[in-house]
């Protein structure tokens, strides 16, 4: 059973590094709606999925790549943990 906090931390670090360089980490809270705000879009979400699949050795379905599953850090963490 993976530690959700560790998973979340890994995902958060990746997002900060790739998509929000220089951003204050405290601004990216668990409930920030990244797809709604344009932090994640159809291009960057594909990069994120590739990272998650490689990092956690999981596989995503195409219908999971959407705002209903990947809008917030919390939702992404929950989705990844459900596959571990």
């Amino acid at each position: 059973m993976a530690d959700p906090n560790a998973v979340k931390s890994t995902i958060k670090n990746y997002i900060l590094e790739e998509f929000l360089p220089g951003e204050d980490p405290d601004e990216l809270t668990d409930s920030v709606e990244m797809m709604t705000l344009g932090i994640l879009d159809s291009v960057s979400v594909m990069q994120l999925v590739t990272f998650l699949e490689e990092q956690f050795d999981v596989t995503f379905e195409a219908n999971e790549v959407g705002a209903e599953h990947m809008n917030t850090l919390e939702e992404i963490t929950k989705l990844v943990c459900s596959k571990l």
């Binding site: 998509f19 929000l20 951003e23 204050d24 601004e27 990216l28 344009g38 291009v43 960057s44």
Partner: peptide, 12 residues
């Protein structure tokens, strides 16, 4: 282009 050169995003 954005895939290679990520656009500037900010929560600030």
């Amino acid at each position: 282009w954005e895939a290679k050169h990520p656009r500037r995003r900010s929560l600030s």
